[in-house]
Design a protein around this nucleic acid. Structure first.
Lengths: 129, 129
DNA sequence: CTCCTTAATAGTAATGATTACTAATAATAG
DNA sequence: CTATTATTAGTAATCATTACTATTAAGGAG
């Protein structure tokens, strides 16, 4: 394994962002730093960083998003589609049904605080079936 | 909304399978019943069934898999890549950090029972970094 | 039952995220 | 400094999914 400025740059972008960026968004930012960086390089390094537990991933609507490597869960709002970080209470590795749990991730789905407040203000409206 | 034999067929396949089938696998089975069913029809109906909470989805390695609509979580084995159903303890809807939780899903990752036993038998070997 | 409206379908083309390929570049060991 | 080869840039290919369109058929009205 060799150190490259490309990998450092990609890691720094993921590690310093709180916005759950997807590969292309990371590429867009990396381009500002390394003008001719390749999209393939971004994908390759994101895969490497993910495999080596340097970054975490979350999949929303079939698109992989990358996240700094701090254990936490996610709340996805059905209304505004925002992803909100949820701190994790316990992080004990354990067995479940005899299977060794190395890691787990929780994805909550619902309506976020802001959207709840907005609905409150406007009077709650429900979509018709 | 109209009832079609295609939608019924697709629903039956998902609802009677324990194998977390992806869209193409469902298409393969559906073809045996309705010889000229279209892949697009399978996708369209899976989306509809999912939106209307008739089936559940789980994403593994970027591919959507479909599951009968019984609340449970999933364990994904890093070794054999099998998906194992994990019954859920509590299913209380609630608020978390002020956000209304409508549903959540837990994806455990680790080494499954069978693979643990196999490793035990062969002597535990770890991949080198 | 028959006709009509139109939702849903089959078949195919297009899209978009991701991966594969290849010649050129650059990180590191000697 | 030089040689080796991992990594890259650029581009083409893949593959899951979605969009499009002419045709079919569900189901309500007469």
């Amino acid at each position: 394994m060799r150190n490259t400025k490309q990998r450092d740059c990609i890691f720094d972008i993921v590690n310093s962002s709180y916005n759950h960026l997807n590969a292309y968004q990371i590429y867009d930012i990396a381009e500002k730093v390394i003008y001719n960086i390749s999209l393939g390089t971004v994908y390759r390094n994101l895969a490497w960083l993910s495999e080596h537990n340097k970054v975490r991933t979350i999949v929303v609507d079939g698109i992989v998003r990358y996240d700094r490597n701090v254990v936490h869960d996610h709340f996805i709002c059905n209304e505004c589609k925002n992803i909100i970080d949820i701190p994790r209470n316990d992080n004990s590795n354990n067995y479940i049904d005899g299977n060794l749990v190395i890691d787990y991730d929780v994805k909550y789905v619902g309506i976020c605080k802001k959207c709840l407040e907005r609905k409150e203000k406007n009077g709650i409206k429900r979509k018709q079936d």
